[in-house]
Every structure is written in structure tokens, then in C-alpha cells.
Design a protein around this nucleic acid. Structure first.
Lengths: 195, 195
DNA sequence: GTCTATAATGGGATAGAC
DNA sequence: GTCTATCCCATTATAGAC
């Protein structure tokens, strides 16, 4: 095998792990499976990562950034407030339908972090970032809200998580879309002038 | 050891597994750990359960029923609509704070079902039951809603799941209580006459 | 730096005595 | 029905040759 820089190798392992977790769940992401997926030997793994958990920590951060990037590409020009909120929920559902494994993986990685001593702060930071992104979105609507933007944002994130989980469990597209519509309505009624 | 009926034994194993999953996560619920917790031998396990997954399926159902029982004990007499909805969310948060492990376990068991071939219908049924229970609660408010009771119920469940997950990740009591309040307000604005 | 080989552990499941 | 003992496999991590 060629000599490859440690950072390149880390990168390849994180990507391989992410694919495996998305496809078959976190339990399937053993060090052996990961190195096989990345096309390298088992020993290479421990050359760049001290342990499986150290890798999973990086996997969580990588997955989070990807998720946030996907959300921030949505165009909202010329839409009413309710349409914008609805569109945001729908975008999540589209990401979900396009790659259910990856979205389920986000929940699995979160649970893993919450069960692994030392990784709890990762879960916390993940939520703070979700809230940050949603808050920016709420402010960007330009609406006047009856509560601080951050609280609205937290409700939006909660609804999004809840609807996503419900879809993952039931795979009921119609129900999920109706939920997105009703949720958008409920959120918009928190605006002072829900135009 | 004494001769014990198969059903008693199953029961003891399910309870032991539930305790382990709540304490240390689903990964810690190995057949060996479960039988040790239940105070019996490993072979007894396979005498009453064909496999670990067969046990976990029963664990999921048991945990679900317990969760629903806990929620249905809440008294709502003499409260306004918003107070009732708020109270429902708060009750969830209290259960959460009282036993975070068990509530986290619910999410883990759900993920497990979604990743295990053959157990997906369990996850689906679990959600249908959540929705049923919430729908009964929504109807019981006596309010006139702008959408069918089931859709309101689905939003309530989504909010509850989302808020629960956020609390599990951040352990921020204040934020969670504010979220419960704002969520209750948003839901109630879906009533025709939100008195 | 990268590999093969192996240690060390823990897992699910089963055989067979009682 | 219940147990002990064991099989067999997969896992994480490391040793040591190159």
C-alpha cells in the first residue's frame, strides 16, 4: 500500500464509517467492517485512531455538518411566512425520503453519544447548533414573533425531529406531509402578524 | 433452582432486560447480562426465548405499555385548554427527569426495531398507539379544532418527542420547560376558539 | 507507515448431564 | 426444566516483521 497522510486516512475512515452506519446501523460499523469498506487493513485504523469511539466522535461531527449544509441550501424567495416554514419542513422530509438510512443514522449516533461517557457534550453541542441554524432561519423570515426567535427555533427543531422520527417509524408519506402542513400552521400562529 | 413456569420466566427476563437497557443502553443488554440480572442461568434464556431479538421484541412492547400507562394517569380537571396541553408536556418532562435512562431506552429500542429486519412493524405499531392515545386526549379537551383530532394528536406527539430528545441531549431543564410552554401555545392556536 | 498474525475478550447459541 | 460446560464466531486492540 502507498503511504498516505494521516489526515487523508482519517477522512477515508470517517466517510466509510458514515456509509456503513447509514446502510446498516451503528452496530454494523465495526472497526473491521470500516477498514474493509475503506479498503485498508485493520492495523491502519489504530494507527490514526486510538479507538472505535474516537472515530465515532468524528463521525458524529461530520454527519452533523453535512445535515446542516443540506438544510441551508433551501431558497425561500417570494414566499409567505407559512409557505416558508412549510417548505423548511418539506425539505427535511425530502432529505429523509431520499436517504432514510442517513437520517436514521443521525438519531443512532445521537443515542450513542448519550450512552458513551465523555461523548455527552457532543450531543449537547449538536443541539445547540441545530438551534442556531433554526434561529437564523426564523429571524430571516422578517416576521414579528410573539416569543424570542430562539424559542420559536427550538419549537421548529422539535417539530422537525418529531415528524422525522414518525416518518422513519411509519414510512407514511401522506401523514408526514399533513403533519408538516399542520406544524407550519401552528408555528406561524406564534407570529404577531401571521401574514 | 426451582421449577418456574415459562411465562414467569419470560416475565423476569423482560423486566431484567428493561432495567439493563435503561441503565446502560441496549448494547449492554447481552443475553449473559440479562440472565445474570434476572438471577438465572444462560441456558434458561434459550429455553424460553429462541433468540435475543425475540426477547427485545417483547421488551419493546412492554416498555411501550408502561409509557402509555404513565401518561394516562394525569388529572386535567378544571383547567383551561392551554393549561391542559401544557400539563401534558410537563408530565412527559417529569417522567423524563425522574428516569432519563428509561426514556432514552425508548428511543434506542425504536432505533433497534427500525434496523432489525422483521421488527419494523413494531415501530410502526408503536407510533400508531402513541397517536391513538394522544387523539383520545385531544378529543377529551372538548375544544373545537381547526383540523381533525388525529392531525392535532400527531403534532402533539411530534412536539413531545422533539422536546424529549432535546432535553435528553442538553439536560437543560429551563429550556425544556420554556419549550413545553411555547409548544402548548402553538398547539392551542390550532383550536377554533382557543379559550 | 503499513502490513500480517495473534492476543484477549465477550458474544449468541447449544449439548448433554441431571 | 434447569443446570454446567463448551462451541464457535466476531469483536477491539496490539505485537512485531518489513
Amino acid at each position: 500500500m502507498q503511504r498516505i497522510s494521516a489526515s487523508t486516512r482519517k477522512d477515508a475512515l470517517v466517510e466509510a464509517a458514515l456509509r456503513l452506519v447509514a446502510r446498516h446501523g451503528i452496530a454494523a460499523a465495526s472497526t473491521r467492517a470500516i477498514t474493509a469498506e475503506a479498503g485498508m487493513s485493520l492495523a491502519s485504523f489504530h494507527y490514526v485512531f486510538p479507538s472505535r469511539d474516537a472515530l465515532l466522535a468524528e463521525v458524529i461531527e461530520r454527519a452533523l455538518e453535512r445535515e446542516i449544509d443540506a438544510q441551508s441550501l433551501v431558497p425561500y424567495d417570494g414566499l409567505t411566512l407559512e409557505e416558508r416554514v412549510y417548505r423548511a419542513f418539506l425539505t427535511s422530509l425530502q432529505l429523509l425520503a431520499a436517504d432514510a438510512g442517513t437520517e436514521l443514522a443521525m438519531f443512532e449516533l445521537m443515542n450513542h453519544a448519550l450512552r458513551t461517557p465523555g461523548l455527552e457534550p457532543l450531543a449537547r453541542r449538536q443541539y445547540e447548533r441545530y438551534w442556531d441554524v433554526a434561529e437564523a432561519l426564523v429571524i430571516e423570515t422578517g416576521a414579528q414573533w410573539s416569543r424570542p426567535a430562539r424559542e420559536i427555533a427550538q419549537i421548529v427543531v422539535s417539530l422537525n425531529d418529531g415528524i422525522s422520527l414518525a416518518w422513519l417509524a411509519t414510512r407514511d408519506h401522506e401523514a408526514a406531509q399533513r403533519m408538516a402542513a399542520v406544524a407550519a400552521g401552528a408555528v406561524c400562529r406564534l407570529a404577531v402578524d401571521p401574514r
